[in-house]
Write a protein that binds this DNA or RNA. Structure first.
Lengths: 150, 150
DNA sequence: ATCAGGTACTTGTATATGCAAGTTCATCGT
DNA sequence: ACGATGAACTTGCATATACAAGTACCTGAT
């Protein structure tokens, strides 16, 4: 009789392990494809999220909500983008605590220049997974994020 | 006619964004439940992976393969566990480059003590997602990791 | 008018992640 | 024997992530 083995129990079903593992795999694939753009996958995602705010920019709480990211992480992740002049951050007049991030012209240019490389990364992943798995996974990821975002 | 908008294109289908976002959500939930154990989700996963090697321990390349993690990351992630005396690392006699990680008695005890808290985290997530979504997601994550691990 | 409570954000600290480059060592061909 | 090649690992660097705790500021109740 073999003794009790916690090891098997956890790896058997752990969604945390699985999500993080896939996160590493996909992020490396994207980072590699994005190398020529000078942006990492995380940075492109963030720049894109800021760009979704249009000319008005995005309030920080909106970004933390979209990305499901801690405010301190957001704050620090914005810095490399700001340092490179791709985004700006301004205070709101009506609430001096609040800050709004907006994309500079340089940031817009960089975003458009990065698009083909993003597409390439995307295609490679979709090809590796096949359309059924890719679509199913996307749906599952969205549904799970929705279920945990409250 | 609205102008071309890269922002929508990327968020529309990006698996990298989605996987990382869910990773953050799930990791936070696990970390919170595991707080009493003094281990973070990543650390418990790693300790568990080492424990899977049994008395022989796990060679580093085996761990990087199981976890789909860069060797440098693995190397550094092992350190907190070693510092706390939960694992040991020894050289192999037949290949002095190679190292093997093994779980100490203290590590085994910690692992068993952590199990109920891991179960609690697991149950909470499964309950939030519902069984269908949880199972489907797990399968998708495994299949995708398999497809990208070559 | 003020103050209590809550929101928005930053700083300090610790871990997580991976690329580039270096060191050590095994292996294989000659 | 020995040199070329490559495998295993570490160090340096930069970014990613989040909790704890602190500061600044708004808002609503009295």
């Amino acid at each position: 009789m073999t003794r009790f083995d916690p090891a098997q129990v956890m790896t058997a079903g752990c969604l945390c392990f699985r999500t993080r593992r896939l996160s590493r795999l996909i992020t490396r694939a994207y980072d590699e494809a994005l190398r020529p753009t000078g942006l990492q996958a995380t940075q492109l995602t963030l720049l894109n999220a800021v760009a979704m705010g249009g000319a008005d920019g995005q309030p920080m709480p909106r970004l933390t909500s979209i990305l499901a990211m801690d405010a301190t992480t957001l704050s620090r992740n914005l810095r490399p983008l700001e340092r490179e002049g791709l985004i700006g951050i301004r205070q709101r007049e009506d609430d001096r605590r609040a800050r709004v991030a907006w994309v500079t012209p340089a940031g817009e240019a960089r975003l458009e220049a990065a698009l083909p490389f993003w597409r390439q990364a995307h295609s490679r992943i979709e090809a590796a997974l096949g359309p059924d798995l890719a679509d199913g996974l996307r749906e599952g990821l969205d549904a799970a994020a929705g279920a945990l975002s409250n």
